[in-house]
């Protein structure tokens, strides 16, 4: 783009604010025409006007703006945006569908858990009832058995006591005789024979005291 320049170019290069410089140059032009030549490129619009205000370029710019923007609008409206819209919609539907499916499965799981817990509670109460029944039954049986055993034991005790009493009575009956015999024997050893009769009397007398 470097090309021959007019004297004012140096001004522009040195100026701090190039826009201001342009304004000055425009005002200073003796013939009212602008002289800011900005690069005499082969095909450039060299009217010297500040480029964005160069009206000779407007028809071309408008023409190509209309063409390019119309093409862009058409492609966006007909191809690109519907395509992206469909992609986004499909994804949204898919996510919603997946969420609904997840919700359905969750409810199913909840139901399964609830029925499992109900079964568990029932089983537990059944087990309790069975245990209770078994316990009562056992207790009754045990009580009956114990009563029977106790009755038979009491009978045996009574019989034993009876026989003991009889034996004791019998034994007590013999005690006097043994003592008399012993006393007779002792006396016989000491003083000579005594009649059994007197020995018996003496024992009876002693045991009375």
């Amino acid at each position: 783009m470097i090309s021959p320049v007019q004297a004012q170019e140096t001004q522009i290069e040195e100026a701090f604010d190039p826009l201001e410089d342009h304004v000055i140059s425009l005002e200073d032009s003796p013939d009212g025409q602008t002289h800011i030549e900005i690069g005499a490129h082969g095909e450039e619009h060299v009217t010297g006007v500040f480029p964005p205000f160069d009206a000779t370029t407007y028809p071309s710019q408008l023409l190509w703006l209309v063409i390019t923007f119309a093409v862009l609008y058409f492609v966006m409206k007909r191809v690109a945006l519907p395509r992206i819209g469909v992609i986004l919609e499909e994804r949204r539907d898919r996510i919603e569908g997946d969420l609904a499916e997840a919700e359905r499965l969750r409810q199913k799981t909840d139901q399964a858990i609830a029925s499992y817990e109900a079964a568990l509670a029932e089983a537990r109460s059944n087990a309790h009832a069975i245990a209770e029944k078994a316990r009562t039954e056992n207790k009754a049986k045990l009580d009956a058995e114990r009563a029977k055993v106790e009755a038979s034991l009491a009978k045996k005790v009574a019989a034993a006591e009876e026989s003991i009493a009889a034996t004791k009575a019998e034994a007590m009956g013999h005690v006097g005789e043994i003592a008399a015999e012993t006393a007779q024997a002792v006396v016989a050893q000491l003083v000579g024979t005594v009649p059994a009769e007197s020995a018996r009397d003496a024992v009876a007398k002693v045991s009375k005291e």
Partner: peptide, 17 residues
């Protein structure tokens, strides 16, 4: 010339109709 800040806005024809 290379430093001209306005030059970048110049419109030139690539081909003319």
């Amino acid at each position: 010339m290379a430093n001209d800040p306005i030059h970048q806005f110049v419109i030139y024809d690539i081909f003319s109709f």
